[in-house]
Lab assay of single mutants.
Amino acid sequence: MTSCHIAEEHIQKVAIFGGTHGNELTGVFLVKHWLENGAEIQRTGLEVKPFITNPRAVKKCTRYIDCDLNRIFDLENLGKKMSEDLPYEVRRAQEINHLFGPKDSEDSYDIIFDLHNTTSNMGCTLILEDSRNNFLIQMFHYIKTSLAPLPCYVYLIEHPSLKYATTRSIAKYPVGIEVGPQPQGVLRADILDQMRKMIKHALDFIHHFNEGKEFPPCAIEVYKIIEKVDYPRDENGEIAAIIHPNLQDQDWKPLHPGDPMFLTLDGKTIPLGGDCTVYPVFVNEAAYYEKKEAFAKTTKLTLNAKSIRCCLH
């Protein structure tokens, strides 16, 4: 018999989150649709729960009410004593943790798909938090293969000092899905179709896995975050240069030392320094102006996964 890495157990509980950011409308629209008619997301033997994560922000069509829901799922915020004085999103995070967690427990949901849009030209993107997770690498390989020839990129946010504390991190297997470009507060049919297909293929993978299909060893190309880059700023902290036209919409493309990065209003080009080629992502993302992030630098690498098969009882 072929030796293989056996994944822990079959997958039982899956959640699909929309509206973690209330103005990213593809996930909101799909989740609302699936709450009314969820036939397309159901798979035999699998509990799939669509869920609106930040209903107040969705109602106002804004990213958040008090603070970013997708950055506060750490033990400090989840452990705060519940009171009306807490920011709305912290209270909501505790409610979500109660419903789908608790985080880092045996009772937490197996998989959470968190649906997002970006204003950046990132196409279909899967966000991975753990480079050693054979199950998710296999799932992402399946999704990428199923979507081809449509490109699907994998963004690895594993980093020693950049801690995200994402909404989906309460699950055993957290999956971020990011599709763009799409303006905030807008629905685009092409973007919706791409996100819908990503979810379909992900659920198909889980179904095949649960039925005992063995997935042979595989490898995927990923883009691992190195650092986030702020806009150049003046002495008052105001933005002093904008994304250069040569960099705009060039997510995932190589940016070499000396290539144009920013452009000042008086026409001066600010190039990339250093001696390493990087791959920019979230270029000129609207939501990241407040976070002082013009783009993120990534490096390209390959992740390998062992063969996996479900432990059938």
Rank of each mutant, 00 (worst) to 15 (best):
P232R: 01
L128S: 01
R91F: 12
K59M: 11
T167E: 06
S83K: 06
V28K: 12
F100L: 09
Y231F: 14
H98T: 13
T26E: 02
R63N: 08
A93L: 12
L255W: 05
V90N: 14
T299N: 11
V281Q: 00
E47P: 06
T125K: 02
S169F: 06
H98Q: 11
E285L: 03
V154A: 06
N37T: 09
P151A: 08
E221L: 03
D275W: 06
E158P: 07
D66N: 14
P245H: 05
M261S: 06
N236V: 15
I226R: 07
D110H: 06
M82R: 12
A286F: 11
T2V: 07
S120H: 01
R92G: 07
H98K: 12
L312H: 09
E158Q: 07
N37C: 13
N304L: 15
I52L: 14
G18I: 02
L265P: 11
L303I: 10
K49T: 08
S307W: 05
P160S: 09
T298Y: 01
C218L: 04
P55K: 13
T302H: 08
Y142R: 02
R196W: 02
P50T: 11
P183Q: 05
C276T: 13
S131Q: 10
E106I: 14
V179P: 02
I111F: 05
N304D: 06
R43W: 00
Q184P: 15
P257S: 05
H244A: 13
T62G: 07
Y64H: 12
F73C: 10
C67S: 07
V48I: 09
G258R: 10
D66P: 04
T53F: 04
T264K: 10
N54L: 04
N284E: 03
I191G: 03
V31T: 07
I225R: 13
P280T: 03
N70V: 07
K172M: 05
T44R: 10
L86P: 08
D230R: 12
K163H: 07
E40F: 05
A171M: 03
I177K: 03
L46S: 04
A305D: 01
Y142Q: 02
S120E: 01
C276A: 15
L203A: 02
V90A: 09
N133I: 03
H116C: 13
Q182F: 01
H5F: 08
R168L: 12
C310V: 15
I220S: 02
